[in-house]
Computed example of a mutant assay.
Amino acid sequence: MRALLNWWGALVGLLLILTGGLLQPAMPWWSPQAGFGFHDLPITAQVPALLLTALVCGPRSGMLAAVAYLSLGLSVIPVFQEGGGLAYLQQPSFGYLAGFIPAAWLCGRLAKQPGMDSLEHLTGTACLGVLTIQLCGLLNLGLGSLARRWGESLPQLLITYSLMPLPAQLLLCCVVGVMARLLRPLLLVNR
Protein backbone atom coordinates (compact mmCIF):
# COMPACT_ATOMS: atom_id res chain seq x y z
CA MET A 1 0.00 0.00 0.00
CA ARG A 2 2.85 2.36 0.88
CA ALA A 3 4.50 1.76 -2.53
CA LEU A 4 1.24 2.65 -4.27
CA LEU A 5 1.04 5.89 -2.29
CA ASN A 6 4.64 6.71 -3.29
CA TRP A 7 3.77 6.24 -6.97
CA TRP A 8 0.61 8.35 -6.69
CA GLY A 9 2.55 11.05 -4.85
CA ALA A 10 5.24 10.95 -7.54
CA LEU A 11 2.68 11.23 -10.32
CA VAL A 12 0.94 14.17 -8.66
CA GLY A 13 4.35 15.74 -7.98
CA LEU A 14 5.39 15.33 -11.62
CA LEU A 15 2.18 17.00 -12.74
CA LEU A 16 2.75 19.83 -10.26
CA ILE A 17 6.32 20.34 -11.49
CA LEU A 18 5.24 20.31 -15.14
CA THR A 19 2.45 22.78 -14.42
CA GLY A 20 4.73 24.88 -12.22
CA GLY A 21 7.15 25.24 -15.12
CA LEU A 22 4.40 27.04 -17.03
CA LEU A 23 3.43 29.40 -14.19
CA GLN A 24 5.22 32.59 -13.25
CA PRO A 25 4.42 33.55 -9.66
CA ALA A 26 3.57 37.16 -8.86
CA MET A 27 3.77 39.10 -5.64
CA PRO A 28 1.15 41.65 -4.53
CA TRP A 29 2.60 45.13 -4.64
CA TRP A 30 1.43 48.58 -3.64
CA SER A 31 3.00 51.90 -4.46
CA PRO A 32 1.63 55.42 -3.89
CA GLN A 33 2.00 56.26 -7.59
CA ALA A 34 0.47 53.16 -9.19
CA GLY A 35 -1.65 51.77 -6.36
CA PHE A 36 -2.19 48.04 -5.89
CA GLY A 37 -0.90 45.57 -8.46
CA PHE A 38 1.17 42.46 -8.96
CA HIS A 39 4.89 42.21 -9.62
CA ASP A 40 6.07 39.13 -11.57
CA LEU A 41 8.83 37.18 -9.87
CA PRO A 42 11.81 36.14 -12.05
CA ILE A 43 11.17 32.39 -11.62
CA THR A 44 8.65 29.71 -12.42
CA ALA A 45 6.72 27.69 -9.84
CA GLN A 46 8.44 24.37 -10.54
CA VAL A 47 10.87 24.54 -7.59
CA PRO A 48 8.06 25.25 -5.11
CA ALA A 49 6.05 22.41 -6.69
CA LEU A 50 8.95 20.01 -6.19
CA LEU A 51 9.51 21.10 -2.59
CA LEU A 52 5.80 20.85 -1.78
CA THR A 53 5.72 17.32 -3.20
CA ALA A 54 8.66 16.26 -1.04
CA LEU A 55 7.31 17.92 2.13
CA VAL A 56 3.85 16.41 1.76
CA CYS A 57 4.50 13.05 0.08
CA GLY A 58 7.98 12.22 1.40
CA PRO A 59 11.44 11.58 -0.03
CA ARG A 60 10.57 8.69 -2.36
CA SER A 61 7.69 10.47 -4.05
CA GLY A 62 9.69 13.68 -4.34
CA MET A 63 12.69 11.91 -5.85
CA LEU A 64 10.54 9.87 -8.23
CA ALA A 65 8.82 13.05 -9.41
CA ALA A 66 12.20 14.76 -9.92
CA VAL A 67 13.66 11.78 -11.81
CA ALA A 68 10.55 11.55 -13.99
CA TYR A 69 10.73 15.27 -14.75
CA LEU A 70 14.41 15.08 -15.70
CA SER A 71 13.77 11.96 -17.78
CA LEU A 72 10.98 13.68 -19.69
CA GLY A 73 13.13 16.75 -20.27
CA LEU A 74 16.18 14.81 -21.40
CA SER A 75 14.07 12.83 -23.85
CA VAL A 76 12.49 14.63 -26.75
CA ILE A 77 9.74 16.34 -24.69
CA PRO A 78 10.73 20.03 -24.25
CA VAL A 79 9.61 20.56 -20.65
CA PHE A 80 12.63 22.57 -19.52
CA GLN A 81 12.73 26.36 -19.67
CA GLU A 82 14.84 26.40 -22.83
CA GLY A 83 13.60 23.19 -24.44
CA GLY A 84 14.83 19.68 -23.78
CA GLY A 85 16.83 16.75 -25.12
CA LEU A 86 20.23 15.36 -24.22
CA ALA A 87 21.91 18.55 -25.44
CA TYR A 88 20.37 20.23 -22.38
CA LEU A 89 23.10 18.53 -20.31
CA GLN A 90 25.43 21.20 -21.74
CA GLN A 91 23.28 24.13 -20.56
CA PRO A 92 24.50 26.18 -17.58
CA SER A 93 21.12 25.71 -15.90
CA PHE A 94 21.21 21.89 -15.93
CA GLY A 95 23.01 21.68 -12.59
CA TYR A 96 20.06 23.38 -10.93
CA LEU A 97 17.68 20.86 -12.49
CA ALA A 98 19.90 17.98 -11.39
CA GLY A 99 19.72 19.45 -7.89
CA PHE A 100 16.00 18.62 -7.82
CA ILE A 101 16.84 15.02 -6.87
CA PRO A 102 18.93 15.64 -3.73
CA ALA A 103 16.68 18.56 -2.74
CA ALA A 104 13.59 16.33 -2.91
CA TRP A 105 15.29 13.62 -0.89
CA LEU A 106 16.55 16.05 1.77
CA CYS A 107 13.22 17.87 2.15
CA GLY A 108 11.23 14.66 2.23
CA ARG A 109 13.58 13.01 4.72
CA LEU A 110 13.62 16.00 7.07
CA ALA A 111 9.84 16.36 6.87
CA LYS A 112 9.47 12.74 8.05
CA GLN A 113 11.29 13.47 11.30
CA PRO A 114 9.20 13.72 14.47
CA GLY A 115 8.18 17.26 15.37
CA MET A 116 8.57 18.63 11.83
CA ASP A 117 4.91 19.64 11.42
CA SER A 118 5.35 23.25 12.48
CA LEU A 119 5.21 26.03 9.92
CA GLU A 120 8.72 27.16 10.85
CA HIS A 121 10.25 23.71 10.35
CA LEU A 122 8.50 23.11 7.04
CA THR A 123 9.50 26.56 5.73
CA GLY A 124 13.09 26.06 6.90
CA THR A 125 13.19 22.65 5.25
CA ALA A 126 11.96 24.18 1.98
CA CYS A 127 14.75 26.79 2.26
CA LEU A 128 17.28 23.97 2.69
CA GLY A 129 15.88 22.40 -0.47
CA VAL A 130 16.42 25.65 -2.39
CA LEU A 131 19.97 25.88 -1.04
CA THR A 132 20.62 22.28 -2.13
CA ILE A 133 19.45 23.13 -5.66
CA GLN A 134 21.64 26.23 -5.61
CA LEU A 135 24.72 24.25 -4.48
CA CYS A 136 24.25 21.71 -7.28
CA GLY A 137 23.84 24.52 -9.80
CA LEU A 138 26.91 26.36 -8.51
CA LEU A 139 28.96 23.16 -8.72
CA ASN A 140 27.87 22.69 -12.35
CA LEU A 141 28.65 26.33 -13.20
CA GLY A 142 32.07 26.09 -11.56
CA LEU A 143 33.02 22.86 -13.29
CA GLY A 144 31.67 24.11 -16.62
CA SER A 145 33.69 27.31 -16.28
CA LEU A 146 36.85 25.35 -15.55
CA ALA A 147 36.21 23.30 -18.68
CA ARG A 148 35.43 26.52 -20.60
CA ARG A 149 32.02 25.13 -21.55
CA TRP A 150 30.07 28.39 -21.22
CA GLY A 151 30.31 31.44 -23.44
CA GLU A 152 29.61 33.83 -20.57
CA SER A 153 31.85 34.72 -17.66
CA LEU A 154 31.36 32.92 -14.35
CA PRO A 155 30.28 36.10 -12.47
CA GLN A 156 27.59 36.79 -15.10
CA LEU A 157 26.38 33.18 -14.90
CA LEU A 158 26.23 33.39 -11.10
CA ILE A 159 24.13 36.54 -11.28
CA THR A 160 21.79 35.11 -13.92
CA TYR A 161 21.27 31.62 -12.52
CA SER A 162 21.82 31.99 -8.76
CA LEU A 163 21.59 35.52 -7.41
CA MET A 164 18.60 36.75 -9.46
CA PRO A 165 16.19 33.87 -8.69
CA LEU A 166 17.34 33.18 -5.10
CA PRO A 167 15.32 35.88 -3.24
CA ALA A 168 12.10 34.92 -5.05
CA GLN A 169 12.72 31.22 -4.42
CA LEU A 170 13.27 31.86 -0.71
CA LEU A 171 10.12 34.00 -0.61
CA LEU A 172 8.12 31.16 -2.15
CA CYS A 173 9.50 28.81 0.51
CA CYS A 174 7.17 30.64 2.90
CA VAL A 175 4.23 29.81 0.63
CA VAL A 176 5.41 26.19 0.36
CA GLY A 177 5.67 25.96 4.16
CA VAL A 178 2.12 27.25 4.60
CA MET A 179 0.72 24.93 1.92
CA ALA A 180 2.56 21.91 3.33
CA ARG A 181 1.34 22.74 6.84
CA LEU A 182 -2.25 22.84 5.56
CA LEU A 183 -2.04 19.77 3.29
CA ARG A 184 -0.23 17.34 5.57
CA PRO A 185 -3.10 16.94 8.06
CA LEU A 186 -5.71 16.93 5.27
CA LEU A 187 -3.94 14.12 3.44
CA LEU A 188 -3.36 12.23 6.68
CA VAL A 189 0.39 12.33 6.27
CA ASN A 190 1.78 10.04 8.93
CA ARG A 191 4.95 11.52 10.33
Rank of each mutant, 00 (worst) to 15 (best):
L14Q: 04
T125Q: 04
P32L: 11
Y88T: 07
I43F: 08
T132G: 05
T160V: 06
H39Q: 15
L166Q: 06
V189H: 06
L14F: 11
A87N: 13
L5N: 14
L89D: 12
C173E: 05
S118H: 07
N140F: 12
Q81N: 11
R181T: 13
L122A: 03
F94D: 01
L55G: 00
C127P: 05
L22W: 13
M27W: 15
L187M: 12
P155D: 11
I101M: 11
S75L: 12
Q24G: 14
S162A: 14
L55W: 02
L157I: 04
L51D: 02
Y88S: 12
L131M: 14
L154H: 05
A66E: 02
L4G: 15
A49Y: 01
G108F: 01
L138C: 13
L52K: 00
A126F: 03
L18S: 08
G142E: 06
L166C: 08
L166T: 11
S118Q: 09
L128Y: 11
H39D: 14
Q91W: 12
G177K: 00
M179Y: 07
I17W: 01
L182Y: 12
I43C: 09
T44W: 11
L172W: 03
L183P: 02
L74K: 07
L110D: 07
P155Y: 08
P92I: 00
I17K: 01
L16H: 01
P25D: 10
A26Y: 14
P25I: 07
Q46S: 13
R181V: 00
G35S: 13
L122S: 01
R60S: 13
T160Y: 06
V12T: 13
L97T: 03
A168T: 09
P78H: 09
M63E: 12
M27T: 15
L183K: 02
L122Y: 00
S162C: 13
L139Q: 01
G9C: 05
F100I: 04
G151F: 05
R109A: 14
P32R: 09
P167N: 09
